[in-house]
Design a protein around this nucleic acid. Structure first.
Lengths: 182, 182
DNA sequence: GTCCGCATGTAAGGCGTTACATGATTAA
DNA sequence: TTAATCATGTAACGCCTTACATGCGGAC
């Protein structure tokens, strides 16, 4: 009943952050509250249960020695199994469904690749990402061409916004590849 | 206990679609399954309860006369109160929080403005939208400048993606204003 | 008369939100 | 010693998801 095969976006954010350096739950809260990372989630009622769940899976461990004072501060660090789980999760291929429904999740996956999956895998991810988006944009354009004559003005503009968002992401990915390879 | 002051994104989508023409629950499902509208939601377990809830609020009504056969097909149409509620909801000012956490919702609001709030209000919405985004982008850039030296490569690129997404939206809004005024 | 598609729903569960509870440590 | 801040958590609820249940009508 534990062992969730895949990570929720929040769990991924938490595991990713802890993979970069040991953190307490409170540190995580501060990060979510004070940086754009918080775009994805937020506060105690979500973070502490998720932390517990990730700990139960054996992916993080609270290191008592980190807390010099006798305070009840749980400093979590990633375990070897946790790093493997993260690596495997970040190595999943980019699917059509990911692009259609989970763009935020894809971007989160990308954001934590440094030091976990290697430069080559990162570039492959970006290439797949861009290619999947190209396909998806082609689908959207097909739909758009068939529907635009019956769409009201705002509906049409909103749809154009959606298409442009995807196109911007594909362009960004191709620029990112250049930058990572330079 | 009913009377939810504001609409969930799904309820807004449903009310907006029904405001354009009478629809059954099944029609809505088909729209969500076969068009990019479905990006926001999906299937029976969400749609039928939401429909019931909107009906209980008095915003839509099932018109028995629409079903020629004696089948159990509920054709819903918007009521005068529903149109008012929709109009009021779409007239809400764009807040900093909307831009930070509910961009999807904002785009949905925009998409249903035709025939509900008038061209002038629509243009005002877009102007506010663009201005709020400009502010938000300024905040993000400030953060980015202070953090980029310590961010790992992928984290930095992901952050740039976020900023560019917002900028694209502001540009889109300004183009949309031109188009609506021409 | 059987099967498929139309059409509406319910049940259980996941995951996040808001609001509240609780206690330890530090600064005044 | 009192208040603010650090730090962790629980309870109730909202809303969506997946999976299943049900029953009518038309095509063959």
């Amino acid at each position: 009943m534990k062992q969730k095969a895949d990570l929720s976006t929040l769990s991924l954010a938490i595991l990713g952050l802890i993979s970069q350096r040991p953190l307490t739950g409170y540190d995580l809260r501060k990060i979510f509250l004070t940086t754009p990372m918080g775009h994805f989630s937020s506060s105690p009622g979500a973070i502490y249960p998720a932390l517990r769940c990730i700990e139960d899976a054996g992916w993080i461990r609270s290191d008592a020695s980190e807390s010099r004072t006798r305070r009840q501060r749980m400093v979590y660090e990633i375990t070897a199994r946790g790093r493997n789980a993260l690596k495997e999760h970040l190595s999943q291929p980019v699917t059509e469904e990911d692009v259609t429904w989970r763009m935020d999740d894809l971007m989160m996956r990308f954001a934590f690749m440094d030091g976990v999956v290697g430069r080559e895998m990162t570039v492959r991810f970006l290439r797949d990402f861009a290619a999947r988006i190209d396909n998806h944009v082609a689908d959207l354009r097909r739909y758009f061409e068939s529907a635009k004559s019956i769409l009201p003005a705002c509906g049409r503009l909103a749809m154009e916004n959606g298409i442009q968002s995807y196109e911007m992401n594909a362009q960004w990915a191709r620029r990112a590849i250049q930058e990572l390879q330079s």
